[in-house]
Design a protein around this nucleic acid. Structure first.
Lengths: 175, 175
DNA sequence: TAGGCAGCGTTATGAGATAACATAGTCCCC
DNA sequence: GGGGACTATGTTATCTCATAACGCTGCCTA
């Protein structure tokens, strides 16, 4: 993976340049909150946050950046779960379906959702300098996508909005 | 590839459900125009539309839909060009750099640009029913992306706007 | 005509994703 | 608590997409 300078493999990463929000914050705390929200959500919906699924979500939350499926798989395998690709893809697909994680197509990667709440239509901002990713509410963007779609008679089900560019830290040479 | 019902391999396709615009039109004519514009453009920029590159563009224009790199490669090989992946990827990368084609990340595919003119920030609408793709001017969407980015202090270089949904024909059961 | 460079071709390999099948847990009804 | 339906996890095998690395050729220019 060429998008960042290869972090020391295997450690728990709760900080670093590649944070999901560009602003500094308490990762452990926001991860814990997200996990609790996830549990409440699945209970409400009657779906199951099984051990692999839960662990996959934890992994994404701990890393706090976009991770490839195989990278998640490695960690799952290290924790005693299966070590074949479908194990990771199934867990990640579940999380994406439930809105607990997002797929970042530009990076062929997945990231835990950082915006609490039910239906939302997030936009992603990917820093090409440091690999950081920010998720922002995309309601306004979504509305403009819908408007363009309407002009074509097209009905939008899902929209991917992903922008590559430079985060504040990198632009100011702080990264 | 599971996204469409496998067209008869090797034919020149100038029609069919998977058109790039949802409205019916004269493919051969719009392809010819695009090719002429491409030639003018590269002349102006001092880059070279070499035989492989030109043929790759023709292939995309003829197919008039999104094509995987390997699919383009097959056609190139059939026309006597190299048969190894880099041949296709290099030609396609050139076309994308020059704005003559676009990469559709959701599909891991490429499509010829259907909107003449220089810098534009297109949005793509992908029908999950029939595989058709429409490219629409995305200036308004781009503006809303920029606005969201500004709130984060993020500078946007490139944005991918890709929406999956249903085209008019499929929604009305005409497809 | 020698050096430099862009472009094309190759081989080999890396990275991402899924189909298909077997086994095991869970729920629910009876 | 037995049996059927369903969900979930694991496997093997394979597929698609993408790129690294290297050599040759042909063109342009000094």
């Amino acid at each position: 993976m060429s998008r960042e300078p290869a972090p020391p493999a295997g450690g728990t990463e709760t900080g670093g340049a590649a944070s999901l929000a560009f602003a500094a914050h308490d990762h452990a705390r926001c991860a814990g909150g997200a996990l609790r929200r996830a549990e409440a959500l699945v209970a409400e919906r009657g779906v199951r946050l099984t051990p692999v699924r839960r662990r996959a979500l934890e992994i994404l939350l701990e890393a706090h950046r976009a991770m490839g499926a195989y990278e998640v798989l490695e960690r799952l395998a290290a924790d005693g779960f299966g070590r074949q690709p479908p194990v990771a893809y199934r867990a990640l697909d579940f999380l994406v379906e439930q809105g607990l994680a997002h797929r970042i197509r530009r990076l062929n990667a997945f990231a835990a959702c950082t915006l609490p709440g039910g239906a939302h239509s997030p936009a992603f901002f990917i820093c090409t300098g440091c690999g950081a990713i920010a998720e922002a509410p995309g309601e306004a963007i979504r509305a403009s996508v819908e408007a363009a779609a309407a002009a074509l008679g097209f009905t939008v089900e899902r929209a991917s909005i992903e922008a590559a560019g430079t985060c504040p830290a990198c632009r100011e040479g702080r990264a």
